[in-house]
């Protein structure tokens, strides 16, 4: 088993066998459950409302996934440093790239678990409505780069700063800023600044795509620009993480 696989395996086990990891998954499923349970009271939703619900569930999964990815990313280097487990990794016969790849693969498998957990929720709220299949497909296609991108950003900051608190706070601020167009409502989003922000914001990109494909049934071809945006975001953040992880703070 190569070093990258060993680290990825450890990261996955840390999520599924470590109490802290399971607690994060419990919190994640708690968010999705709370949202799903809110819908039970409303039995007479229109198809549009239902598509809106599926869209919002996909958005919630992306946001919750990004949040957990940020926490895991911030912990990736700085948490290991603070717990004294980073030096044994750095002094083992592995390169810093292998270490990063292992961490990145661990994060990807954690998102994989979160994605799989999200599918029953999407089915539960969306099986009677429209575009459930699209929702699941596009959550994978657009949610994955957005979530992993935020995780890699946190990982980069974690390697660079050596502090969980500092990297977590900075990443959360970026995540909140990215989600802000959604919080401030459509009025401000239609302003010139709002539109410009939407054009470069991967989080908005993913949510706008969910809106377009789940509610409006738009085809993939109309979403290629946004797909490029989220893929560029993923590539950029992985590049930043790779640069930072070349010489992580370990003391």
């Amino acid at each position: 088993m190569n070093a990258c696989t060993l680290i990825a395996k450890k990261e996955r086990r840390a999520l599924l066998q470590n109490q802290r990891g399971l607690a994060w998954l419990l919190a994640y499923s708690g968010i999705l459950s709370a949202f799903a349970l809110l819908l039970i009271s409303n039995q007479e939703l229109s198809l549009l409302d239902n598509a809106q619900v599926v869209y919002m569930m996909a958005g919630t999964v992306t946001a919750a996934g990004a949040l957990i990815a940020v926490i895991m990313g911030a912990d990736a280097y700085a948490g290991e440093r603070e717990r004294g487990t980073l030096v044994p990794l750095l002094t083992a016969p592995i390169s810093t790239v292998e270490l990063l790849m292992g961490k990145a693969a661990g994060l990807a498998s954690a998102w994989g678990i979160m994605y799989l957990l999200a599918i029953p929720y999407l089915w539960a709220v969306g099986a009677g409505g429209q575009n459930l299949g699209q929702a699941i497909f596009y959550l994978g296609l657009f949610g994955t780069p957005v979530v992993l991108g935020f995780g890699y950003l946190a990982m980069a900051l974690s390697a660079r700063s050596g502090s969980v608190m500092s990297s977590l706070l900075t990443s959360l601020i970026v995540l909140l800023f990215s989600a802000s167009p959604l919080l401030i409502g459509p009025g401000l989003r239609n302003s010139a600044v709002g539109k410009a922000l939407d054009a470069v914001n991967p989080f908005s990109g993913a949510l706008n795509t969910y809106d377009a494909v789940i509610i409006d049934s738009d085809p993939l071809t109309s979403q290629l620009g946004r797909l490029a945006l989220v893929l560029i975001w993923l590539g950029l953040m992985f590049g930043v993480a790779r640069l930072s992880a070349r010489r992580p703070v370990f003391r």
Binding site: A36, V53, G128
Partner: peptide
């Protein structure tokens, strides 16, 4: 047409 069913949501949630 019922689009949100507690019979589906409750077991999952």
């Amino acid at each position: 047409k019922p689009v949100v069913e507690s019979a589906r949501i409750l077991p999952v949630a």
